[in-house]
C-alpha cells in the first residue's frame, strides 16, 4: 500500500458517497444512469469473488465489501425505491455493446484460463468503459448537475492516480500487471474524452438540491 493507492481509493469512495448522498438527500435519481450503475455492480461482483478465496488485508476486504454493498444500494435506489424519478428515457445506451466486447476480450486476453481470473479480467475491462452510458445520458439530457461533475471528476481521477501507483510499484517493487495498466489507461482516456464530449453542456441546479 502506498499513498497513491490510498488517495485513489479515497476518491473512489468519495465518488460513490457523492452519488448515494445526492439520491438520498433529494429522494431522486434524476440524471443518474441506472445502466452505468448496473455495469459497476457487475464490475464489483465479478472482481471481488476473490473475497472468498484470497485474503490480502482487512483494509482490502472492507473496501471490497463496501464497493459491492454500495453498488447494490445504488441499483436498489434507482430501480426500486426511487424508480419514478429514474429518467429511463434518457438512459438509452445499449450496454450489450460494452458487455459483449469485454466478455470476448477477457476470454482471449487474460493471465490464466481459469474462471476467477477470466472474471477478474472481464471486470477490469468492463470498469474502463462502465461510465459510457452515464456520459451519453448527460449528453442527451443537455444538462449536468454539480454533484455529477464532482462524481465524474472523482471517478476519473481515481483511476488516473492508480496509473501513478502502478508506475511507482513497477519502480519500487518490480510489480506490474499489464491488463490492469492497459485498462486503466483506457479508462482514464475515456474520462478525459468524456469531459470534452460534455463541454458545452449546461450546468443546472435542481430545485431540490437547494433545500437545506
Amino acid at each position: 500500500m502506498n499513498i497513491f493507492r490510498f488517495a485513489a481509493d479515497l476518491l473512489h469512495v468519495f465518488a460513490i458517497a457523492t452519488l448515494l448522498l445526492k439520491i438520498w438527500n433529494t429522494r431522486s435519481c434524476a440524471g443518474i444512469s441506472g445502466k452505468s450503475q448496473i455495469l459497476f455492480g457487475l464490475v464489483y461482483v465479478t472482481r471481488y469473488l476473490d473475497l472468498f478465496t484470497t485474503y490480502v488485508s482487512l483494509y482490502n476486504s472492507v473496501m471490497k465489501v463496501f464497493f459491492v454493498v454500495t453498488s447494490a444500494v445504488a441499483i436498489f435506489l434507482i430501480y426500486v425505491q426511487y424508480k419514478k424519478t429514474y429518467e429511463h428515457d434518457l438512459d438509452l445506451f445499449r450496454i450489450e455493446l460494452l458487455l459483449l466486447p469485454c466478455a470476448m476480450l477477457s476470454l482471449v486476453i487474460n493471465h490464466e484460463d481459469i474462471v476467477l481470473e477470466v472474471l477478474w479480467t472481464f471486470s477490469t475491462y468492463l470498469e474502463s468503459v462502465a461510465i459510457i452510458p452515464q456520459l451519453f445520458m448527460v449528453k442527451k439530457s443537455g444538462g449536468i448537475e454539480k454533484f455529477m461533475i464532482r462524481y465524474l471528476i472523482a471517478f476519473g481521477s481515481y483511476r488516473a492516480i492508480y496509473l501513478i501507483n502502478w508506475a511507482y510499484r513497477y519502480i519500487m517493487e518490480s510489480h506490474y500487471d499489464l491488463i490492469a495498466i492497459f485498462a486503466g489507461i483506457l479508462q482514464t482516456i475515456i474520462y478525459i474524452l468524456g469531459f470534452f464530449l460534455l463541454r458545452g453542456v449546461k450546468v443546472v441546479v435542481s430545485d431540490k438540491e437547494e433545500e437545506p
Partner: peptide, 10 residues
C-alpha cells in the same frame, strides 16, 4: 506467475 495472479489492489 502466482504473484501477479494475487490481485492485491482494488
Amino acid at each position: 506467475d502466482q504473484d501477479q495472479l494475487t490481485h492485491d489492489e482494488l
